[in-house]
Design a protein around this nucleic acid. Structure first.
Length: 580
DNA sequence: TCATTTAGCGCG
DNA sequence: AAAGCGCGCTAAATGA
C-alpha cells in the first residue's frame, strides 16, 4: 500500500482515475489545488479507499459511479460522499445558471451513457482493459477527471447561483451512491409469495398451455365472440373480431372497451388483465429477476430528462401493486415503507411561494385543504384540477376546473403558466436548483419559423401551434416534476446518512443476502419517485421510521429554507410492502 | 430473416 | 377514451 506518505493537510477531495494496473489518485486541498498523486494497485484499491475514507472522509471524485462503487461494495467498502463527474456534467452543461461560455459546456466525451452493469458486483470491475473498456462511458483517465472537475467547479462558482448548483450536484452524486447501494443490497423478494399470487390469480399452470384462469377467460371471450379460434393477443385481429359482433371501438384499449356494453367486454377485460400479469411479471419474470431472495434492478439516476431516475431491466419502476405482498423482509428484519403525500403540488406551492396553497396543505391532505378553501367541491375534483394544472389539461373536467384554481392560487398557477409560455416560445425553464430543460429540437424550431413566414399554409400554422403547445405542457411539468425529483434526492441523501448512524446488529442477526455492507443494518432497498422502502433489523424499525421522517423535514429545509411547507409522509412498518 | 415501430398497460 | 406530464417493457405488426 502506498498511502502512508504524509500530505500537507487533509485532502478535501480525492480524484480517482483508472490505470492498467489499478488506479491513479490525486489529492486536492479545499481550494482545489493538487497536493500530490500516486497509484494504487487494483488488488489493494478497496482496502486503500476504506483506509482513506476512515482517515480523511474526502469527497471522492470519479468519472462514473457504476464503474467504481459496485466493486467497492462487493468488498464491503462504503463511502459517504462522492462527486460523479458524468452526472454533474450533464446537469452543468445544460444549466441556465451556468455561464453560456463556460468550458464545461463544450468538454468532449462527458455526454457518454453510464456504463451500467446488470451484475451488482462484477469482480472484474477493477480490471481495466484499456481502450476497449474506455470506449464505454465517459473518460476514465485521472488527468481527464481532474480537468473536468476543474471545469465543473469553475462553472458552479462562476454561475449565477453557486449554492443551488452545489446542492444539486451533491444531491445527484449522493443519488448515484444510493442507486449502487440499492442494487447491491437488493429488494427482499419472496418468490414463494409471488408464485402464490400468480397461482391464485392466473390459476394452476397446466402442461405447456396457459394457466387455468387465463385459459378460462380466453374461452369466455371466444364464446362471446362466437369464434372459437379468435386471436386475442393480436390487436388488429381482436379489433376485427369485435367489429364482427357489433362492438364498434376504434382501439382495444381498456378505457374504450370499458364504455361498451356487450357480453364480450367483461371477460375480455379480465383476459387482458391476467395476460398482462403473466407476460410482464409472471413466472418467467420471477425466474429471470429474482435470485436468492432478492430483486436487484438497475436504477439509473438522472435517467429521465427532468432528473427523475429511470431503471433498466426488470421493470423496477412499474412493479404492479398487486405484487407488493411478495416484497418481504428477511427473518429478524422488517420493512419501513414511506411515501410522500402529494409531493408535486407541495413542491409547487413551496417553489412559487404560494402561501395560500401552502396553507391548504398544512397538517392535512392537500386536496382536502383545497376543498376547504372553496375552490372546488370534492377531493376528487381537487385532485383532477391540480393534476390538470401541472400537466396542462385544457379540455374535459380537468380543463374546466383549472381556472378555479387560478383564482384561488394565483402564485402557484402563475409559475406553471409562465413555464408553459416560456416553453411554447422556445425558451428554457429550470428547476428550483437549476436543472434546465433541453432546448427545442431543430425540427421544432424550423416548424415555428416556417409558420411565421408570409407564405405559410394553414397546415404549417396548425402544426406549429400544436408543437408549441406540446412543448409548453412539457416545460410546465418539467419545473414541478424536476423540483420534486430534487426534493426526493435530498430526502434520499439525508436518509442514507441517518440510517448509517444507526448501530449495526450482531453478526448472528444479519441478513447476508443484503451483502457485506448492509447485512447488519437498516438500508434503503427501493426508491420510486416519492416513495422509499427501508429494510431494517426489527429492533431498529422505529429508528429507521424516524429517520425517514426527519430526512423529509431536512429535505424541505435544504430546498426551501423556512418556507412553511410540510412534506407529509405515510409511513408503515410491516413484514411485507403490501399496501391497502 | 432481422430490426424497428406500434399498441397497450404498468408505475409515479 | 383519453382528456394531461414523465417513464420501461412485451408481443405483434410492420418495414427493410
Amino acid at each position: 500500500m502506498t498511502s502512508t506518505v504524509p500530505v500537507t493537510g487533509v485532502p478535501a477531495w480525492i480524484v480517482l482515475g483508472r490505470t492498467v494496473a489499478g488506479a491513479a489518485v490525486a489529492y486536492l486541498d479545499p481550494g482545489g489545488m493538487e497536493q500530490r498523486r500516486h497509484e494504487v494497485a487494483a488488488s489493494e484499491l478497496a482496502d486503500w479507499i476504506a483506509h482513506a475514507e476512515a482517515e480523511w472522509a474526502p469527497r471522492w471524485v470519479w468519472h462514473d459511479t457504476p464503474q467504481w462503487y459496485p466493486a467497492l461494495l462487493a468488498h464491503g467498502v462504503r463511502i459517504a460522499r462522492c462527486h460523479d463527474l458524468r452526472l454533474c456534467h450533464v446537469i452543468l452543461r445544460a444549466s441556465a445558471l451556468v455561464d453560456p461560455h463556460a468550458p464545461v459546456r463544450t468538454a468532449a466525451g462527458w455526454d457518454a451513457a453510464p456504463h451500467v452493469t446488470l451484475e451488482a458486483a462484477a469482480p472484474t470491475l477493477f480490471d481495466f482493459e484499456g481502450p476497449a473498456d474506455a470506449a464505454k462511458g465517459p473518460p476514465a483517465d485521472l488527468d481527464d477527471a481532474l480537468a473536468e472537475f476543474t471545469r465543473q467547479r469553475d462553472a458552479i462558482a462562476g454561475g449565477a447561483e453557486p449554492g443551488r448548483l452545489r446542492l444539486l450536484t451533491a444531491a445527484e452524486s449522493a443519488g448515484a451512491l444510493v442507486a449502487a447501494e440499492m442494487q447491491a443490497a437488493g429488494l427482499p423478494w419472496d418468490a414463494a409469495a409471488h408464485d402464490r399470487i400468480l397461482t391464485e390469480t392466473l390459476g394452476e399452470r397446466g402442461t405447456g398451455g396457459q394457466p387455468a384462469n387465463l385459459a378460462a377467460s380466453a374461452a369466455r371471450v371466444r364464446a362471446a365472440l362466437g369464434d372459437p379460434t379468435a386471436s386475442l393477443d393480436s390487436q388488429p385481429k381482436l379489433l376485427r373480431a369485435l367489429h364482427r359482433v357489433g362492438v364498434l371501438v376504434e382501439s382495444t384499449s381498456r378505457w374504450e372497451l370499458a364504455e361498451q356494453r356487450h357480453p364480450v367486454i367483461e371477460p375480455l377485460l379480465e383476459y387482458k388483465k391476467l395476460s398482462r400479469l403473466l407476460s410482464a411479471n409472471g413466472w418467467a419474470w420471477l425466474a429471470e429477476w429474482v435470485d436468492d431472495g432478492r430483486f436487484r434492478p438497475v436504477f439509473v439516476p438522472g435517467g429521465v430528462v427532468t432528473g427523475r431516475w429511470a431503471s433498466s431491466g426488470g421493470g423496477a419502476l412499474q412493479l404492479p401493486r398487486q405484487l407488493r405482498e411478495a416484497v418481504r423482509a428477511d427473518p429478524g428484519f422488517t420493512l419501513v415503507v414511506a411515501d410522500v403525500a402529494q409531493l408535486e403540488p407541495r413542491v409547487l406551492a413551496a417553489m412559487s411561494g404560494d402561501l395560500t396553497l401552502a396553507g391548504a396543505a398544512r397538517d392535512r391532505d392537500l386536496y382536502a385543504g383545497i376543498v376547504e378553501s372553496g375552490a372546488v367541491a370534492t377531493r376528487s375534483e381537487a385532485k383532477i384540477a391540480i393534476l390538470g394544472a401541472m400537466y396542462g389539461a385544457t379540455t374535459g373536467e380537468s380543463g374546466r376546473l383549472v381556472p378555479r384554481l387560478r383564482r384561488t392560487y394565483p402564485r402557484a398557477m402563475g409559475l406553471v403558466d409562465d413555464a408553459a409560455r416560456t416553453g411554447e416560445d422556445g425558451g428554457l425553464v429550470s428547476t428550483w436548483l437549476g436543472r434546465t430543460c433541453p432546448p427545442p429540437s431543430e425540427v421544432w424550431a424550423e416548424a415555428q419559423s416556417r409558420a411565421s413566414e408570409a407564405d405559410a399554409t394553414g397546415a404549417d400554422e396548425t402544426r406549429a401551434r400544436r408543437w408549441a403547445r406540446d412543448r409548453g405542457r412539457f416545460t410546465r411539468n418539467f419545473v414541478v416534476q424536476g423540483t420534486a425529483a430534487e426534493w426526493a434526492l435530498a430526502w434520499l441523501a439525508d436518509l442514507r446518512t441517518r440510517l448509517d448512524a444507526i448501530p449495526p446488529v450482531p453478526a448472528e442477526r444479519s441478513a447476508p443476502r443484503s451483502g457485506p455492507v448492509f447485512a447488519r443494518r437498516p438500508h434503503l432497498a427501493f426508491f420510486l419517485h416519492d416513495e422509499v422502502i427501508v429494510h431494517t433489523p426489527v429492533e431498529h424499525a422505529e429508528a429507521a421510521a424516524q429517520a425517514v421522517k426527519d430526512a423529509a423535514d431536512t429535505a424541505g429545509r435544504i430546498l426551501f429554507g423556512d418556507f412553511p411547507m410540510d412534506f407529509r409522509l405515510d409511513v408503515r412498518t410491516a413484514i411485507t410492502a403490501f399496501k391497502d
